[in-house]
Design a protein around this nucleic acid. Sequence first.
DNA 1: TCATAAACCGAGCGCGCGGTCTAATATTGG
DNA 2: CCAATATTAGACCGCGCGCTCGGTTTATGA
Lengths: 200, 200
Amino acid sequence: MVRTVDPDKHAAKRRAILDAAAGCFARDGFEKTSTADICRAAGISSGSLFHYFPSKRAVFVGIFEADTAENEELLATAVEMADPWEGVLAVVARMTSAIVLPGVVRLILEAAAQAARDPEFNELIRSNDDLMRVGLAGLVERGIHTGRFSPMLSSADAGNWIVALVDALLSRASLDPDLDVEHEQAVLRQLLTRILGPSE
Amino acid sequence: MVRTVDPDKHAAKRRAILDAAAGCFARDGFEKTSTADICRAAGISSGSLFHYFPSKRAVFVGIFEADTAENEELLATAVEMADPWEGVLAVVARMTSAIVLPGVVRLILEAAAQAARDPEFNELIRSNDDLMRVGLAGLVERGIHTGRFSPMLSSADAGNWIVALVDALLSRASLDPDLDVEHEQAVLRQLLTRILGPSE
DNA sequence: TCATAAACCGAGCGCGCGGTCTAATATTGG
DNA sequence: CCAATATTAGACCGCGCGCTCGGTTTATGA
């Protein structure tokens, strides 16, 4: 062979394209974003785009594949924390931190809409979701065993509804840009307290 | 004048088109639904479609304009109920009843995605949402005054988060078709109980 | 240096889209 | 039955789309 590919450079370029595309998808939605838009945003030609990705859909999917690793990492650090209550709060804080990035929230909305119609993509999104749900359930479970929590729900239900509450906050933030984010986060924390019943 | 229009027939046809279009939008999303699809579903030609609506977007918007009246009616009947707790439960039951109609849930998702990108449409969706939120807050307020509720949140916050919880349940149902709906509804009711603290 | 594969470009293809237009037909009041 | 208007049909248009393809440039190992 006379030339080997540098996998790092390749991956870096892929990620650059994904980042540029994410901005487009967030602004205009999947269907209204043209491949030409992505090329412009990424500063490449259509030939290059389709050199890195087989289709527009693959670009969209790629964005969320990258998320999986990030979420795993987030959960791992939360699990390592001494206090499960702090762990839950950290996860929730991180999940809700996207509120101030309207683009991210729109992407999530767009993903939900696409997942409703694309079974394969649905599976990806759901696996990300499951990760958070079972991860949180695990945290809750641990808290129960150590006596830190006395929740009103089973650990599984608690995990599910914590994620649900976060999702609800995000989607409302996207609908209502004047939302008092700090206040709603405080209310969310109250609700979490009520659900998990952490001891003082 | 030599000919008057029959407004009832006109409105009926409009509604028929809206119903047909709603099915298309739910199945394929706004962008992927072509005007030809709508025509086929409604059994009309494109000439007729654009006689009743100026654009594809107007068809989409029309679907949700019809919802407003429905929601007002729902709230009105809830307010008339003697027990505010029953009123809240009735509203929540009605809002969550859409779970078993996957099409409706998908439409809601699609609307959320569109509203993120279309300020005028956003206003419509948000006004529907506000209606429910202040309506529920009013119910809670009444319950507080009559001593029926002793909520952990202000009536406004309670209204907001009740709607948020319902939204969360709907969007999760769309992601996970195997969801145990009855169970989640029961959990939702537990949460409501905890939030509102209805006296026995 | 030079052969070779990776990376990249951008013109262009075929297609399906939202919407228009003209003409034909149905429906009404007089 | 006529005049006037509402309703309908469907061929049609221009545009922008996702993606392909042939060719050029760039980087690298021998």
